[in-house]
Simulated assay, not measured.
Amino acid sequence: MSSASLAVAARPHPEAARVVALSAAIALNLAALLILTRPLAPQVLALMHKLAAVPQVTFIEPPPKVPPPPAIELKPLPHPPAAPVHVQPRPDVAPPVATPSVEGTQPMPTVAPPSATPADTTTPVEATLAYRSAPLQFPAQALRQHLQGTVLLRVLVDENGAPVQVEVEHGSGYAVLDRSAREQVLAHWRFQPAMVNGHAVRAWARVPVSFVLHDL
């Protein structure tokens, strides 16, 4: 026998090798499947028991709707009849008749004497009032310019003797003296209030204010 024939006889048959390989693969797959499924069997059984123990849900139908009560119509109460009002007629009164006097003439009506009315204190009166003056302050500008003169003021005095308004009735010829006299009388002078029927009233009074240099 030649060497070629021996080589052919020693090579295995291809069908037998394929069968052996497939058998080995199937055996390996079965072994792996058994290994994987064996520990999962208790878990699958427990899950099936839990699914079987789920309680059934029963749906309760809502109660039927109750219709609303019928509307009640409110009727107004009848008003009681008004009681009749009896008006008594007014008796006729005869006009008074004047009784003639002995001489046959009508009596003269009695006239009451006029009552004394209080004096109107809203309108100030004109009066000559006593006053208490404060020491006169000579304006500095008038001293520098050697100005002097007399200012005649018209002063409105209230019921308490305080001046409330001062007007220049006749000026001194110098505005600085007129302004100083008005301000000093309004701020510092006091008067005796005018009296009418025993009541103090507002009054206008005239007072002179003299600025003389030799008096300093």
Rank of each mutant, 00 (worst) to 15 (best):
A7Y: 07
A9K: 15
P12S: 09
V19D: 05
A24W: 02
A24G: 13
A24E: 15
I26D: 03
R38G: 08
L45K: 14
L47A: 15
V54L: 15
P55E: 06
Q56C: 12
E61F: 01
P62Q: 11
A71Y: 07
I72A: 12
P78E: 13
A83H: 14
H86R: 09
H86I: 00
V87T: 10
P91N: 00
A94G: 03
T99M: 14
S101W: 01
E103Y: 09
G104Y: 12
V111W: 09
S115T: 03
A119E: 07
T122Y: 11
T123K: 02
P124M: 11
A130H: 15
R132E: 08
L136T: 08
F138T: 03
A140L: 15
Q141T: 11
Q141P: 05
G149K: 01
V151G: 10
V151A: 02
L156R: 02
Q165T: 09
V166R: 00
V168Q: 05
E169A: 12
S172I: 03
G173H: 01
D178Y: 10
S180N: 09
A181M: 06
Q192E: 09
P193F: 08
P193V: 13
A194S: 11
M195R: 14
V201F: 04
A203G: 08
W204M: 07
R206F: 04
V209Q: 00
F211D: 00
